[in-house]
Nucleic acid binder design. Structure first.
Lengths: 203, 203, 203, 203
DNA sequence: GATGAATGAGGCTTCATTCAT
DNA sequence: GATGAATGAAGCCTCATTCAT
């Protein structure tokens, strides 16, 4: 790529390389020097585009996290039926496909990300999704089902790298299991007879 | 603790503090200086007891990972029935209880741990457990179920910190869901037609 | 100030902001980035108006130091009487009033200014003033008096910020003391009557 | 000096070189690299002895500022007579002789020192001295006299470098003028005869 | 069983400055 | 009259590690 051709998209290129390295080697292990070298620019050039190393992560998250935000907005406008939840899970799975490296990065660098300003924001998004999946007064096991559904989708993608099979098929399998979990967490009958309390499992 | 009383168990104390800090702040963010300061010894003292920083992690894993190894040995000596698998899951859950900080550390510092010599060894233990849970020729969805069961137990502990409820109850809820997943992954019927597998539970 | 109204006087505005920041935070601690940001222009814009950072200081000194130069020219054209010297001090005090931030800057950043080309020029101006205040063959103590008079006027302004009282009154008080010092350093009768101490003002 | 012989006094040597460079070139212009190079150690060695660059300054001030503190303690235990004040000034002059580079540094780097934690502590010491020199209800001019006395002793030392004459003689001359100023600021007769102006020396 | 002193490598960040547009 | 993009040098600081005592 010529010097000429690189103009104007350096910011984007920094994000790409940074995400690649962050997700491959970890946040702490990836130095700005390394990113700069891979891009054949100086470290100072990075600082022209981003105020700090953390800022790069923030920008990644803002760009790639947008689909998730939109998904949340969508879900909040829907009736809280099981159908909606299944569709939510399905769409989420889809979103993760394109944002995979970002989620891998988040998943594998939790400790490092924790004190980046973004940690909280990420966590709160997860909690919102969780809130959308579970019944308001769900039992503990059902809550666990929902959280597990969510996390299996994140972790799944990489912790299953060793499994044979093509990625798209794996994604579908994960989605299937996650859907089962959410379905199990949202029993259809049990609700008419339960004005607001739980636990009664009647035959 | 008096200076007197501290004699002779410095090694242990280093491990304790290191694990605490590693799991709280992350591996990369925790410096030997910090560990030494918290112990009120010098950095050099750490080097008397451990050859490198990585060595501390290795020692932690050797000590706290032993129960898992024993569990594996036990499981390998059992018939590969669903009952065994359920018991395996149950015992695993129990082991995690005491080794929680270590697993939290592993979970949240995957990127950092990846190029520590221990990374592989940890991963291989997970794969062994996975192999013990799943049917040899299990379908993809069933494999996902088993992996999810395993990971929900790791992640569960910390990603569910925000949930209300006492830790022991949560652990039980997680175990319940994990057991369900494993059960679902090991369907009882489907087996008559499969001559080459073991597991046949009923005629 | 509208974008429209800012046209054409950017140079001036740079000087204003630069002086303000230099005198508030120090020369080294004030970056061109900071100046540019406060002006809402880019750093490159500063370079359109000034060749270097040092150039900004030089320009400040040329503009604000002119009154001092004029004062020197005036004094050199007067008879070297005590009256002239007192008037010189008085006018100097007046000049300092408007050039206060510049002098504060010079006073508090001596080390930083020393290797700016301007350092020497400032120092030589001070020496010229000193030469105009003291008798050609003044004793050491009288020389000290003159220098002290000069410096008390510079330092005075800021080192007395903590004192209560309004600025104008303080300036007058400082001028009064400085005048005394100059007067004491310029005995009317060619000092036959002064064995070694001072104070005696009239026979 | 052999490697052997340098042991144990590195801390001291750092302080010496640092003070020398700080006072010669200014605080901001002196890098730790420079100090380290001059000492033929690595930068990291400096950090073994001092936590930060600022810490070096603090240590200098603690060591060299002690005489001033002792002087203050002494003065506070004396009757507040003119004699005491003159003796205070005399002793102060003496102290400055040994701490000259430190004071030069403080004087010429006011801007840089201002936001070092020590700035305040220095300033407050000056204010205490000022309080000890002036009468509690002194007029503004008398206050100016006292401050000028103090500052002439600081500034004097270096701003008079250009003057011919040996340093010790200059110091004495400065002390003489400072003493005069303090004397003038402490009129013996409780000022019944001084409605608001000064100058009148005899009844 | 531990310390004191030091090192080499490298981290993030900031700065003054340049130049094509 | 000014900007956008970039650079090279340098700053402060921290880290894991070593070794003589």
């Amino acid at each position: 790529m010529s010097t000429q051709a690189r103009r104007g998209n350096t910011r984007q290129r920094i994000q790409d390389v940074a995400l690649e390295l962050f997700s491959e080697q970890g946040y702490d292990k990836t130095s700005l020097r390394e990113i700069a070298e891979k891009l054949e620019v100086t470290k100072a050039a990075l600082y022209y585009h981003f105020k700090t190393k953390e800022d790069i992560v923030i920008s990644l998250f803002q760009d790639l996290g947008r689909p998730i935000d939109e998904l949340i907005v969508w879900a909040e406008g829907q009736p809280r039926t099981l159908e909606t939840k299944k569709e939510l899970i399905r769409r989420y799975s889809e979103s993760l496909r394109s944002a995979e490296p970002l989620f891998r990065f988040m998943q594998e660098n939790q400790a490092a990300v924790r004190d980046l300003s973004i940690g909280e924001s990420f966590k709160s998004r997860m909690l919102t999704l969780f809130g959308l999946l579970k019944e308001p007064d769900a039992e503990l096991t059902d809550q666990v089902r929902c959280i597990t559904a969510l996390f299996s989708m994140h972790a799944g993608m990489f912790s299953m790298q060793n499994l044979e099979g093509d990625p798209e098929e794996k994604r579908k399998a994960i989605l299937e299991v996650a859907t089962e979990l959410v379905t199990a967490a949202n029993p259809p009958h049990r609700r008419p007879a339960r004005p607001d309390s739980a636990q009664t499992v009647s035959p």
